[in-house]
Design a protein around this nucleic acid. Structure first.
Lengths: 148, 148
DNA sequence: GAGTAAAGATTATCCGGATAACTGTTCTCC
DNA sequence: GGAGAACAGTTATCCGGATAATCTTTACTC
């Protein structure tokens, strides 16, 4: 690949990353959340109570990041941690009632974010783009240097 | 847009953002750089000495981020800042000889990163994907809440 | 069963990047 | 030409996310 093309690709990804996150941040702020928290909450909603290790895998980030986020969500009253019955090392995280109440608004924000992200794209373009993004994500995930 | 689709889109973008950055970080580390620095160096190489405001615009991030990165690049000896001749507020940043020497290896790393990112994609798929990413980036840039 | 390896979680410390607040300079307009 | 708005930059402080190291508990192996 020539440099111009490579730069265009890397720059586009960087720009999308920064802007999508900024947009997410401004929308999530309405719910008192920071970007990253939504992933944890949605994962808990989708797959029920689970350990932080599982959460890390689902959220696509490292355990220490989960520890911190979960602690903040816990002090915010959205989540609770209890020691796992069968393993004293593990802690099972689950949504509190207050956390569950936040899920519906959160889902709406999540949809609005996606819609704004692809605003101006027609149906086919979105489908094509989504396909490409998922391939890209899959490829990067596979050859990532990360532990997960 | 339904939730499933929205989630797929948001998650893919988040995953790509994290992984691409992680991949970049591991490659840039070979040159002693952190992600973000390369954007500044490449901008200086592409468009010559410029103020930090211009750098912020080119790098797609906020002035305070540029201040810190430029200071680190300066202490690393890759960049130097001189007061602008016509404006005592502004500081013009330029590459040092040592910084210029890093450009070629950096460009190679940048190309390698892009190649690894789209590994497995054929020529047409890359072109299509790049087009979609640039549209996405443009749209997000346009409706961003950021100052730039 | 004892001793070592592996795993879950946490802490500390680094980084980029954001906003808010502040400093100092330039511009504008009366 | 003097007052106030606008602007370049910096600092302080927040956040997510990463790695490395540590602690505790479980699992494996002899």
């Amino acid at each position: 690949m020539d440099f111009t093309r490579a730069d265009a690709l890397n720059t586009a990804i960087r720009t999308i990353a920064i802007r999508h996150r900024a947009l997410a941040a401004s929308m999530l702020a309405e719910l008192g959340l920071h970007p990253g928290h939504e992933v944890v909450l949605l994962a808990l909603d989708a797959h029920g109570p689970q350990t932080q290790k599982q959460l890390a895998a689902e959220a696509g980030c490292e355990p220490p990041s989960i520890t911190v986020m979960v602690r903040k969500l816990e002090t915010a009253g959205l989540v609770e941690r209890v020691a796992a019955a069968d393993d004293a090392r593990a802690r099972v995280v689950s949504l509190t009632g207050q956390g569950r109440e936040l899920i519906e608004p959160l889902r709406r924000v999540w949809v609005r974010l996606a819609e704004e992200t692809v605003e101006g794209f027609d149906e086919d373009a979105v489908r094509e783009l989504l396909g490409g993004l998922e391939l890209l994500a899959g490829g990067l995930r596979a050859r990532g240097r990360l532990r997960l």
